[in-house]
Design a protein around this nucleic acid. Structure first.
Lengths: 345, 345
DNA sequence: GTCCACATGAAGAAAGGTCATCAGGTTACG
DNA sequence: CGTAACCTGATGACCTTTCTTCATGTGGAC
């Protein structure tokens, strides 16, 4: 199967007896053309189903009007929502989006960046993989003046704009909520320690403990690799502890949901035996039993804001100086944690 | 912010005193070059961080090694899984993937096709939006000999290959299971009637009824527009029926989960009052309460098979004749339906 | 020793499709 | 008759690939 030949301007020119440059001018609605000429050409282009070859056009004008997006995993509802926001808004501003996923590996992240840069994308939006612990590849594209921006999973050493949630504030809120609803031993289940969001959410956890005059207990911080297997191992470890926590805050909802599912299967009652909370507010979190207390981070809005800012920079509307955009999070109390009693509201 | 200039072959040629064609030959490891010359060029290209300009390359060879993918909604776990399969396998065979979503609208489906064709993708993989009820745009690209293939949501009139699940077989299985587990009035909650999967799953539902000698009752077929609002309206209608069904089979899991959530909020017990089943086997279906009986359709495998077949056609490995690839589905019994009694197994 | 043929390694030109710029031809008006 | 405006054509550029041509050196035959 050979890809069919597409109509070129040269063919229209031949058919109508004009030059290629006249065809080009007519199709871009240039005022330098006689209206009759223009109409003839536009009609013929339509009749012949002409579509501009974007490769040739982009090569000539050194611009593709295409942005590259790299997310860790496309099957994550949060990242799919980010992509949706990016794509909807980019399309509104005349841009296309090329989406890649790193499958949470540094190698694929690097390869994807190379491919997208070679494809001459006008800019990149990158959320780092959980494996990313060195940043040469990002400094490399920074030095080559490839426009890019980091979102959600970022690194603060790269001098580019970034869009994040108030990770510390959200974690502070949910940990505080656990403490206010009676928990005395609150655990934090983290992701990989190098990951920005792991660090920031831990800071919020610690901040809330401090405010309640509680010392950080290293037995109450566990690290999951964020795989389902890893999450279930954590669930087992917690269940097997001599002195269990009475509240568990998980860095992201999928971790909390894996833990919840396992605990239910071995008879642990949530929130009676142990309260459980997450961070993300995936749709799944509302439909599990009991519905999961979590912190809402709207991916679609993040995507829109990120692409809006990158395009503003690309088009000279915003300054090139790196800025940090921080979106607020919202506590979403549900039944996986105990209710605030009336005099505590 | 201006996109930085990338190194060209011309610059390497100037630096080393060779012609551009020699640079090109060296970088593609041509045997026509002296090894010393080749090494000099390869080293310099690496030192200057040269990356080929894929626009220029693609324009010259009339091939982009890029496939376009159009799905109805990227936030659907099923379609995200398809994309993951497509992308992983395409990358293995040296292809990139450009992903677009139609947001379940025909207009965006048409626009996305135009953009991808203009971008000179080597082929398209399309899953139709729920709004798609006319097919001129598909016949148009067929007539222009743009290679494409349909997956999951297909149309049988377009003479191209398609990859689907055994929708009828899966629906037959789950309806039969509902009947075998004691249901006497099984309802089918469909999506839009023009949609291929709506029709096929209805056929399986009817087939199972016939096998049990049950007449089709038009009061037991409802149509949802597949939005959350639409699904909840269906849940209300069912709850308000004078004579309720005792088993409900929903065309896709998200419909079943919305119905389940609503019913729980008004005190309907599943499966005691009404049994409930879906089709998809989203991860969410395993973690709701009670876990949802469903039919598994593995998106990742579908994606892999679809792209494998399209690439075989593109590369002349497979014939251009349209074929229909049908993947088997698997019944996944869970607690939203009653258990088969022992002598019925 | 000279001439011819062949092999090796490289340069130059053209092609892909489009855009932007400069030049040229024609017409109308002062 | 000269100038300006209108409309169009021709050309080169973008970057890479591929094919033809060219230059040089070596070996063999006379």
């Amino acid at each position: 199967m050979k890809k069919g030949h597409q109509v070129t301007m040269k063919e229209i020119a031949k058919k109508l007896g004009f030059s290629v440059s006249t065809i080009s001018r007519a199709l871009k609605d240039s005022p330098e053309l006689h209206p009759d000429t223009k109409k003839k050409i536009v009609d013929m282009a339509k009749e012949m189903n002409y579509q501009p070859n974007l490769l040739a056009q982009s090569l000539r004008i050194s611009r593709t009007n295409t942005l590259g997006v790299i997310v860790p995993e496309i099957t994550s509802h949060f990242f799919a929502s980010c992509i949706s926001g990016i794509q909807d808004y980019a399309n509104k501003r005349g841009y296309n989006v090329m989406i890649c996923q790193s499958n949470e590996t540094l190698d694929l992240e690097i390869a994807n960046i190379r491919t997208l840069v070679s494809s001459q994308v006008d800019g990149l939006l990158i959320s780092l993989s959980r494996e990313t612990n060195q940043y040469d590849h990002l400094f490399d594209i920074y030095n080559r003046e490839i426009p890019f921006l980091l979102f959600d999973r970022v690194n603060e050493d790269i001098p580019v704009s970034r869009v994040t949630f108030n990770d510390e504030g959200g974690a502070y809120q949910v940990t505080k909520y656990l403490l206010e609803t009676g928990c005395k031993r609150v655990m934090y289940v983290s992701g990989p320690e190098d990951l920005y969001i792991s660090k920031k959410r831990k800071e919020g956890y610690i901040h809330a403990l401090n405010e309640f005059g509680i010392e950080l207990d290293s037995d109450l911080v566990k690290i999951s690799d964020l795989t389902t297997e890893g999450n279930i191992n954590i669930a087992k470890e917690i269940a097997n502890m001599k002195t269990r926590p009475d509240g568990v805050f998980c860095m992201i909802d999928p971790v909390a949901i894996d833990i919840l599912t396992f605990w239910k299967s071995i008879g642990i009652k949530v929130p009676e035996d142990m309260a459980l909370a997450g961070f993300t507010n995936n749709p799944t979190s509302a439909v599990v039993e009991p519905p999961l207390t979590t912190v809402a981070q709207p991916g679609y809005e993040m995507g829109k804001l990120a692409v809006s800012h990158l395009l503003d920079q690309l088009e000279g509307i915003a300054s090139d100086d790196p800025i940090s955009i921080v979106l607020e999070t919202t506590l979403v109390p549900r039944q996986s944690t105990k209710a605030l009693s009336k005099n505590e509201k």
